[in-house]
């Protein structure tokens, strides 16, 4: 029984990891006042480019770096359009997703059916020997450890550092931040690029760890679920973490209910994460004040420096 439970928890962790990266990256972008709806497209590009790099070089590190770079490249296109060309954020984000779905399919056409063993597990000496806790916490691939670290880092950066404060100021009132002399556009560029890099890594989690292979459109809406997670978490890093595990749990529930033969059709179980996203979004959004209190005030609004 414990064995099964441990196995289940470990799969929840692998399912939640891509969501943590994508949602935290998007949260930082949104905190700077920019809504990037292209997460799904950036994730797919990260997934396919990371997989290609591993396939060609055999190096997992290079794969993850390439994935981050691919996400950053996609985010750069978005940033130039939105910040340089004053394009609408919603439309540009959608375009980024449509473009990413197409381009990743094009890049990955020769990779369908290529196998990869998955990222190596890095067991932490001694700690991974502890019964129960060991395998759950200290025997993962590098991306899972990275996701733990990222929550701490983002939380510390936004809440405890001067740069984080400036970023939040830019997101809450770009005119005031500009008047004080902060480079609003440059800060937003950096925030968007960070979001892109994290979405790229989220893609790598899918194609290198979660189901180590490339399939067209393999993110299957996880980019959008990540966007919903940011709202669910009311723009707080730790709640993103909790939310991602909640969703990871729902995703895994679907697999295990299948195995136990619960008699529910596979399709109905597969609907769960999407249905849960809607329910959760409704529960959180219902309280308008809560949303208004925590969401960046300038989100989605274009910035025109007047002087």
């Amino acid at each position: 029984m414990t064995e099964v439970l441990i196995a289940a928890i470990i799969t929840i962790i692998t399912a939640a990891t891509p969501l943590i990266y994508a949602a935290l990256g998007e949260m930082v972008t949104e905190k700077s006042g920019v809504l990037n709806l292209g997460v799904e497209g950036m994730m797919l590009m990260g997934a396919v480019c990371g997989f290609t790099a591993v396939h060609l070089s055999g190096s997992a590190t290079l794969g993850i770096l390439t994935a981050a770079l691919a996400g950053t490249g996609m985010a750069l296109v978005f940033a130039v359009l939105v910040l340089g060309f004053q394009a609408t954020q919603v439309a540009t984000g959608l375009a980024l997703t449509i473009f990413g779905v197409g381009l990743s399919a094009l890049i990955g056409q020769d990779l369908v059916g290529v196998a990869y063993d998955g990222l190596p597990r890095l067991a932490i000496p001694l700690l991974s020997e502890i019964p129960v806790i060991g395998p759950i916490l200290f025997n993962h691939d590098i991306l899972v450890y990275g996701s733990f670290a990222l929550v701490f880092l983002v939380s510390w950066f936004l809440g405890r550092t001067r740069a984080g404060l400036v970023l939040r100021a830019v997101g809450d009132s770009h005119d005031a931040a500009h008047a004080i002399g902060y480079p609003v556009i440059r800060i937003r560029y950096l925030a968007i690029l960070f979001g892109g890099a994290m979405s790229g890594v989220a893609g790598a989690c899918l194609s290198l760890a979660y189901s180590p292979l490339w399939i067209e459109n393999m993110s299957a809406g996880r980019g959008w679920i990540a966007l919903a997670l940011v709202v669910f978490a009311t723009w707080r890093p730790w709640r993103v973490f909790v939310g991602a595990y909640l969703f990871g749990g729902i995703t895994i529930l679907q697999l295990h209910a299948q195995a136990l033969g619960a008699g529910v059709p596979a399709q109905v179980m597969s609907m769960l994460p999407y249905a849960a996203t809607i329910v959760v979004l409704v529960l959180i959004s219902r309280d308008r004040n809560k949303i208004r209190l925590n969401s960046p005030a300038c989100i989605g609004k274009p910035f025109h420096p007047t002087s």
């Binding site: 919603v90 919903a228 999407y274 409704v282």
Partner: peptide, 10 residues
């Protein structure tokens, strides 16, 4: 007040 982008997409 739930965002229609996310709900319609889900």
């Amino acid at each position: 007040n739930a965002n229609e982008i996310l709900t319609s997409l889900m």
